[in-house]
Design a protein around this nucleic acid. Structure first.
Lengths: 112, 112
DNA sequence: GCAAAATGATTCATAAACGAGTCACATGAC
DNA sequence: GTCATGTGACTCGTTTATGAATCATTTTGC
């Protein structure tokens, strides 16, 4: 991430990142996993896991969420079932509000 | 993010990402902010905000958290004050944790 | 005590995210 | 109808994160 450096982020965001990293580290130790083991399970490198546990703002959110999921750190304070359900309800809400369903611009070559 | 592509991420993580993006979009609309406005406030580009709302796993977590904080999507279901407090307590826990936690590798539930 | 393992912190090449710009299409105002 | 605005999607060049490898230090196990 080019622009979001430490001083650019709000204190709240930095705290949230630090907390999430600490929670992940806690959960990893509680599960008796080494950094290498957890990194392998998550499909990432050990260095990236260290940055995640440090609360680095530049880490890909997908990697962070995956690690959190593996060690059992709850995202949004909801378990797997609730998350899926809420996702479905959210999709409905979105479908109702804006009427913008745009198909990907694909060239149609049957113009004659 | 080289490795974490869609098929690599667990369903849970992808759901969490989609949900977070949807929540951010909801909150942005509720605040009557355009994508350009919110992106400017967060110090990111409009394209990145679109990827965030889409739930793209490759987005930097700092950017996502910052946007979420701006529009008021709660991270970890806690407000700013509680977050700081919990961060402090978490730091204490880490410091107090037993340093000897190396035991026969225990299985961890990662099959979701 | 010693050896093995885990961790933290580097460095570097490569792959990928990011920002800027553009276009098409939709919506709303007039 | 026209015009302005908002949005999704795309491309391209630059900037950055990531993975791999290495090393020093600490910690665990024996």
């Amino acid at each position: 991430m080019p622009k979001i450096i430490a001083p650019t982020l709000s204190q709240y965001s930095r705290d949230a990142l630090s907390l999430l990293g600490a929670l992940i580290r806690e959960a990893r130790l509680a599960n008796r996993l080494t950094t290498s083991e957890l990194a392998t399970r998550a499909g990432i490198s050990r260095g990236l896991l260290q940055r995640i546990e440090r609360g680095d703002a530049g880490c890909a959110i997908g990697a962070v969420f995956e690690v959190a999921a593996i060690v059992g750190v709850p995202l949004f304070e909801m378990d797997e079932r609730l998350l899926s359900a809420r996702l479905a309800r959210q999709a409905e809400k979105i479908a109702l509000l804006p009427k913008s369903v745009r198909a990907p611009r694909k060239a149609v070559k049957d113009d004659f």
